[in-house]
Amino acid sequence: MSLGPVRPPLLGELETAVMNHLWSGGEGEAKDVHAALGKRRGITLSTIQSTLKRLYEKGLLARDKVSHAHVYRARVRRDDFHRDLVGELVGDLMRGHADAVVSAFVDIAERAGPKQLARLEALVAERRKQLGRGRK
C-alpha cells in the first residue's frame, strides 16, 4: 500500500534494521526479531519491543495479537516506502532544497523540450552514422 502524499516517516538505524528484517522475513514476534538482530547487536528485548511499537505507531508495521504476544509484519512494502521517499526527494529537488546533497545524472527539475530532445537525438544518430557505427 502507499503512504499517500503525507511525508514518509524517516527511520533510525535500528528501525531500518528491523524493517529490513521484516521485509525479508515476513513476520515475527518481538523475541524473534530480538533473536535475529538484538543478540548480535547487544540490544535488549525491551529495546526491540519499543522499536517495533514505534514503527507500528509510524504506520509502517501492522500487528496481530496471538496468544499473549504481538506478531508484527510490514504494513508498507519496501518499494512503496522507496517510492514515497523518492517522491519527497524529487519534490525537494524541484524546490531546490536537496540540490546541496544530490548530484543527479540528469537534472530532476528541468526537462529538455520535445523538439530539443528530438534535435539532439538526431545529432547523435547523424554522428554515429558518420563514424560508421550505425545503430538502431
Binding site: 527511520l11 516506502f81 521517499l85 523518492v86 526527494l89 532544497h97
Partner: peptide, 20 residues
C-alpha cells in the same frame, strides 16, 4: 532554513541508502 531543508533531505537519502 536552508540547513533544515538539507538535513531533512540527508535523512531521506540515508533512509534510502539503508533500506536499498
Amino acid at each position: 532554513l536552508a540547513l533544515s531543508a538539507t538535513v531533512r533531505a540527508m535523512r531521506v537519502l540515508s533512509s534510502l541508502r539503508r533500506t536499498g
